[in-house]
Nucleic acid binder design. Sequence first.
DNA 1: CCATAATTGCGTAATTAAAACACAAACATA
DNA 2: TATGTTTGTGTTTTAATTACGCAATTATGG
Lengths: 225, 225
Amino acid sequence: MEQDIKVSVDAVVFGYDPEPKVSVLLIKRKFAPYQGEWAIPGGFVKNHESLEHAIYRELTEETGIIMDYLEQLYTFGHPNRDPRSRVISVAYFGLVRPDTYKIGAATDAEKAEWFDINDLPPLAFDHQNILNKAIDRVRAKITYEPIGFELLDERFPFSDLENLYSTLLGRPIDRRNFRKKILSFGMLDELDEKVSRGAGRPANLFKFNKERYFQLKSEGILFEI
Amino acid sequence: MEQDIKVSVDAVVFGYDPEPKVSVLLIKRKFAPYQGEWAIPGGFVKNHESLEHAIYRELTEETGIIMDYLEQLYTFGHPNRDPRSRVISVAYFGLVRPDTYKIGAATDAEKAEWFDINDLPPLAFDHQNILNKAIDRVRAKITYEPIGFELLDERFPFSDLENLYSTLLGRPIDRRNFRKKILSFGMLDELDEKVSRGAGRPANLFKFNKERYFQLKSEGILFEI
DNA sequence: CCATAATTGCGTAATTAAAACACAAACATA
DNA sequence: TATGTTTGTGTTTTAATTACGCAATTATGG
């Protein structure tokens, strides 16, 4: 018997806001099944495109957003996860910086919306499962790989990084020990630039040095919180 | 245009031998493409079976081996990874205990063979990529999840565990500190049984207590080397 | 049968990393 | 100019890791 299985890709895209809150990008489905319900963006893979190309293409079509970081998450293949037919979904998670995050939300409000991950609507298909897995992965991964920087502006004050970690990990972080720890890796460049937000001493801006990170990684020096 | 993509599953199955060496299960391909070359076992998913079911079925058919542990690894979807047509492969990695390992090798030598991961033949398709990713995953994962026990007999002496870790991590381990660390988690039951292998004081046997592990995990006590 | 080598089990000391906390500097605001 | 707020840089205390000593228990060789 001929195989009749369709392949789709879906992406859980995260954004960060220094309110602080972590958001995920959802679209409202236009067609059945689950018409009018919220879902994570995605779609079917074309015959000659890579999975990553399919994800970028669908994201652009459905939301207008370009991700700054993309990583494969897990493949969901339960035989009945789609009521129409057998569809397996290769799920990814993506991260976007605040500038992308804001522009996307402003210009494509019709197409897609950002939701606080602690205040989500019901989701279509098994998308709640996918989203839960994505959240778990991001939470775990920021502690042993420097992906958190992909959620911040290229130039950021330390307090942004600290708040991001504190929010995602769901626990308070000692500002001073956190700073020492991160700086000890030697992966951040301190810039000759400061930013002032309301009261208080202006903060120095930092930039994540990706080249240096890979060099240190190859030398066995690991990023680990 | 109709989507025409086939879905296969492949499994990198690991076994451990206290020589010490880590082995992986390969099959010799009977048909083109890559006829006569070594490959990791796998095959196409049937329309109404789950991905996991497909893997267990293919493993039984092709090698007669039943895995003691199975986990999804990654989905490989490069458009040209299969010369016949577009095929995406959902790859898994599996672990088997020494009894399964030995029986399988003895009874199905025609069908499949075990290879030392440090002495592998050339592999078909992109299977070398898959295997590399599987090795990386297992190496990393034994340090933060207790999956190493799935490569040992249910009852094992501490030296087996130590050699397994030392072999996989590729570095010497202080026997005494390793023992203290593992025992401090409280996930091992010490048995009233000893085993003697050649010279030296006989070793107590231990058993991994899975229920206790999950209980401790839910209390926030983590397995971490 | 005894000395020796090998392996296990248990302990303690030295070193390193993590956590807790004090305080001055630099700004906004009133 | 006084006050509150946030940042930057320490030090002290505590916990974890690493290094290592040594007795117990067996197999082996003479």
